[in-house]
Design a protein around this nucleic acid. Structure first.
Lengths: 296, 296
DNA sequence: CGTCATTCATGCGTTTTTCGCATGGTGCGG
DNA sequence: CCGCACCATGCGAAAAACGCATGAATGACG
C-alpha cells in the first residue's frame, strides 16, 4: 500500500475537491483523481461520493480520513521534534573527562552552559579511565590524549602545562632543588596507581635528570590529583601538577622553572554519529569558546 | 514529503538492514538505500548509523521510528475497520417505509434481522411521505412506487394486492355489492387526506364502474391505513385494503372478487453510494429473501 | 592477525510509473 | 435553459524509480 496516497487523500478530503487539492499539492486535477482512484482500488472501497460541486466522504472515507488526520498530526509533531532536535539543544548529555579537569576546569564552567541551554541535562562522568564512546558509555569526552579511532571526531581544546610545585613550608625546610639531579635529595610525590599510563607524563620527576631505566621511586603515590595537590600544599614534597590545579594567588611555588616540562593537549571527542545532535554542537561550541578565552 | 518513504523507513528500522527490508518490501537493496537517503535529505538529518552488520537508529531516527510505528498502528487499525465495514454489518441503519408496510410487514420481520446482525442498530422511520434518500433522511426505503432518480438503486420486492373488504356485520345489514355500479348504494371508506397521491390507487372504490370525472365521495377518509382497517372491521363500510393488512383467519370478507383490482409493486430503494456498505447489503439480502418466501 | 563474508553506496541503462494536457460528460445554479 | 465548475479518461511525454553490477568498508571467525 502506497502511504503517499493517504497524504494526498487527506488533502483532498480537507479541500473538498480534486481541483483544489491539486492546487495545494502542486498536481493536476487528473493526477489527484487517479491517485484517489488507485487508493480506492487498494482499500477496495469508494472513499468519496462524486458530486458536481465537490466531494463528500463515504462511510469508509470517513474512517480513513480520521486515520489520515491522526497520522498527519503524529507526523507533524515529529517533524517539529526533528527540527527542535536539530536547532534547539535538549535532552541528556553524558560528558566524561578526567577527575582533575572535570572538577577544576569543567565543573566551574558548566553552570553557564546550563543557563544558556536550560533543556539540556548534563551528566558528568569523572574518571581517569577512558570510557568507550562507541559503546555510548558517554556522549562526549574531554581527553588528554589524541584518540585513534577514525569514527571519533576530535577537536583540540587547549594545552595543559605542567610545572613542579612545592609549598613554601617545604622549601623553607628542604630548600629548592637546584638542578634535576638534585631531585634525588627531595621528597617526590606523584600521581599514579591504577590510572592509565598516558597520564604518566606527570611522572616526569621520576626520570628527569636520570637514567629512565632506573627512575626515582616517589615517596607518595596517589591516584587522585586533588589529593596530590593537597599533599604538596601542606609541604609533603615536590610534585608535577597541571597548571589548572593552581589557582591565581595560590601559595604554591613553582620550582625548576628553567626546565622543560611535559605538556598534554586536551581534545574534545565525540562519535561522528553525534555531530548532528544540537546539544552536542552547543556543548562543543561552548567549550571551544571557553578554551579560547582561557589561557594558562 | 513523500509518506511512502516513511513506510519503507519503518520496515528498514524493523528489519535492521537495507537488504532484509528490500526482501520484505520486494525491492532491491539499492532501491531501499536510495529511498532512505532521500528521506534523510527530506528531514535533513541522518536516520541510521551505517554499520557493517546492519543499521542503528540515530536519535532523529528514533524519533521518526516512534512516529512511524504509531502511524502504522493507526493505519492497521483503520484497515481492519475498513474490511469490517465491508464484511461485517454494523452501525446504524435508517429504514423508511409507509406506515402500513412498516408496521404490518417489516416490523414483524425485523427481529430476525437484528438477531442475525447484532451490531446493526435499526431506526424505523414510518411515514407515508417519501423521505429524501439523497439528503440522507434515511439510508434505505421500501417504496410503493418506482423511484425516478437514476442515482438510486432499486430492487423490486413483491407486489401488494388490494381487495375490497367488508365486515360480516356490514354485509348482514347492507348486503354485498352486486356490481361496481351497485357501489353507489354502499358506504365507502377510503385512505386519504394529506397522504401522497400515488397511494390514491386505493381510491379505486371512488371511480370503479363510474365516470372518473365524477367520483363517489367516500363516507370516511382517514390518513392511517390501520385505522381504516379497524373501521371496516367494525362494520363502518367497504374499503380497499392491501392484503397484508388482512391476516389469515380474519373475520373480514372479500367482496367484488371478480373485479380487477389495482396493485402496487414495492421496491427496495437506496442510494448508489450505499451499495458498498455491508449493513445495507445485509439488509437488502434479508428483505429479498423474506419477500420471496412471502406470498399473498 | 589475516581472510572472508556481509553490508551499504553509487553509476548506468532500462523499465515502470506518473504527470499534464485535452476532451468529454454531468449536475447544480443563475 | 444555458453555462459553469467539476470529475473521468485517453494519450503522449517526462520523470522517477528500479535492478544490476561494482567498489569499498568493516566486523566476524578461524
Amino acid at each position: 500500500m502506497d502511504w503517499d496516497r493517504i497524504r494526498i487523500f487527506y488533502t483532498v478530503a480537507e479541500s473538498g475537491s480534486f481541483t483544489k487539492a491539486g492546487d495545494t499539492l502542486g498536481l493536476s486535477q487528473s493526477a489527484v483523481s487517479r491517485q484517489i482512484s488507485a487508493l480506492e482500488r487498494e482499500v477496495r472501497a469508494p472513499l468519496f461520493h462524486r458530486h458536481t460541486r465537490g466531494l463528500i466522504l463515504t462511510e469508509q472515507g470517513e474512517l480513513l480520513w480520521r486515520a489520515a488526520r491522526d497520522m498527519t498530526q503524529r507526523l507533524e509533531k515529529t517533524k517539529a521534534q526533528l527540527t527542535e532536535t536539530r536547532e534547539h539543544p535538549s535532552g541528556e548529555l553524558k560528558v566524561t573527562t578526567t577527575v582533575g579537569l572535570g572538577s577544576r576546569w569543567l565543573a566551574p564552567r558548566l553552570g553557564e552552559f546550563l543557563d544558556s541551554y536550560p533543556d539540556v541535562r548534563v551528566e558528568m562522568l569523572l574518571t581517569d579511565e577512558e570510557l568507550d564512546l562507541s559503546m555510548r558509555q558517554a556522549d562526549i569526552a574531554i581527553r588528554l590524549r589524541q584518540p585513534q579511532q577514525p569514527d571519533l571526531i576530535q577537536r583540540k581544546l587547549f594545552t595543559v602545562h605542567f610545572h613542579v610545585y612545592a609549598a613554601p613550608s617545604y622549601i623553607k625546610r628542604y630548600g629548592e632543588p637546584k638542578s634535576l639531579e638534585d631531585l634525588d635529595n627531595h621528597r617526590i610525590l606523584s600521581f599514579g596507581g591504577t590510572s592509565p599510563s598516558y597520564l604518566l607524563s606527570v611522572h616526569w620527576l621520576g626520570t628527569a635528570g636520570r637514567d629512565p631505566r632506573n627512575p626515582r621511586t616517589p615517596h607518595l603515590l596517589v591516584n587522585n590529583i586533588a589529593a596530590l595537590r593537597n599533599a604538596v600544599e601542606h609541604g609533603a614534597g615536590l610534585a608535577v601538577l597541571p597548571d589548572y590545579l593552581v589557582e591565581q594567588g595560590s601559595t604554591l611555588v613553582q620550582t625548576l622553572r628553567e626546565s622543560e616540562m611535559p605538556s598534554l593537549d586536551s581534545y574534545l571527542v565525540y562519535p561522528e554519529e553525534m555531530k548532528t545532535v544540537a546539544r552536542v554542537q552547543a556543548f562543543r561550541d561552548f567549550l571551544i569558546q571557553k578554551a579560547q578565552r582561557w589561557t594558562f
